[in-house]
């Protein structure tokens, strides 16, 4: 028999006080993604099917590279939170949920690093 009220027992087991930050970060990256993704769509339709020389020439432009790096950073943060919400909604087994959350973080970081590396390589030509 516990003397603690149900409210005090449930406190600290809930959101761990981090939910608001995720909510705000998701909105902030969403706003940043609007111009950045529009720029990416522009690159996609103008570069699809073009020769290697044409594509690498466009991607080695400093402005293009900085915009793409910004897009990758914002997209990777946004997609990690988005996938975390999907996992939380559908996966209820604790172990599997934690594994998928970890895989989600690893995947997002790997995508960010690989894309960033490729863009830097195109620009510095190492």
């Amino acid at each position: 028999m516990t003397m603690r009220s149900p409210l005090s027992r449930v406190r600290g087991l809930g959101s761990a006080h981090s939910g608001t930050e995720h909510f705000l970060t998701q909105r902030m990256t969403a706003i940043a993604n609007v111009p950045l993704v529009l720029f990416f769509v522009y690159l996609l339709v103008t570069l699809a099917g073009r020769s290697h020389a044409a594509v690498s020439a466009t991607l080695s432009n400093s402005t293009t590279a900085i915009f793409l790096l910004a897009a990758i950073l914002s997209v990777v943060i946004h997609m990690r939170i988005g996938m975390q919400i999907i996992i939380e909604d559908y996966v209820h087994h604790d172990g599997l949920k934690m594994s998928l959350m970890m895989a989600n973080t690893f995947f997002s970081i790997a995508i960010g690093l690989c894309a960033g590396f490729a863009i830097l390589k195109l620009n510095f030509g190492l």
């Binding site: 690989c114 590396f117 490729a118 390589k121």
Partner: peptide
């Protein structure tokens, strides 16, 4: 979710270009 996995395609293309 599709765009999440679609980033693989984007990275593939960037690497091929690089």
């Amino acid at each position: 979710a599709a765009l999440y996995f679609g980033t693989i395609l984007f990275v593939w293309w960037l690497f091929a270009a690089a």
